[in-house]
């Protein structure tokens, strides 16, 4: 077994070169490079954890905003409905008032028109009487050759008109 047979001749060289190479590995790689690699890993883990936390917070914030928005939306809808109802009531009252005013105006117009009609029909009636009386005088003169006084004719016409 060379491990034992060569022990006395080679132990110093083995240990020397081991300490040299392993020492270099320890100081250059172990102390020089490994902490940097590990810090990169730690940095990345911290960043991932941080990002996750931020995302979670953003999620919560988004939920909050959505809730807020929904609440405002409901409020706005309710206020809009009340405004619409108000406007409707106001418009109804307004139109009622206008209708009433128009009604009154129309009633006045109707009354005056009726009055005018009555006046003109009365006037027409008297004119008809005059015309009829004249016509009656003429008719009497042509038929009988007699003369009828104006008053008598008018009287007769009146009677006839009253009887229809």
């Amino acid at each position: 077994m060379p491990q034992i047979a060569q022990l006395a001749a080679t132990y110093s060289s083995q240990i020397f070169w081991l300490l040299l190479t392993f020492g270099l590995v320890f100081f250059v790689i172990g102390l020089g490079m490994v902490p940097k690699i590990q810090s990169t890993v730690d940095l990345r883990n911290a960043k991932i954890a941080d990002d996750l936390a931020r995302a979670k917070a953003a999620f919560a914030r988004a939920d909050e905003i959505e809730e807020d928005c929904r609440k405002r939306d409901t409020e706005n809808r309710a206020s809009a409905q009340s405004i619409v109802a108000d406007a409707r009531a106001k418009a109804a009252a307004e139109s009622e008032k206008q209708v009433a005013a128009a009604d009154a105006k129309i009633a006045v117009q109707i009354a005056s028109a009726e009055e005018a009609i009555a006046a003109s029909s009365a006037k027409a009636l008297t004119e008809i009487e005059a015309v009829a009386a004249e016509a009656a005088q003429d008719m009497v003169a042509r038929i009988s050759g007699g003369e009828v006084s104006r008053d008598a004719a008018t009287q007769a016409v009146k009677v006839a008109l009253a009887h229809g």
Binding site: T10, S12, S13, Q14, F16, W17, L20, T21, F22
Partner: peptide
């Protein structure tokens, strides 16, 4: 007084490093 010959063993330690 200690032998520190560069042996095949040493070579593979260096290669490993």
């Amino acid at each position: 007084g200690y032998n520190i010959a560069f042996t095949n063993s040493s070579l593979w330690m260096v290669v490993t490093a």
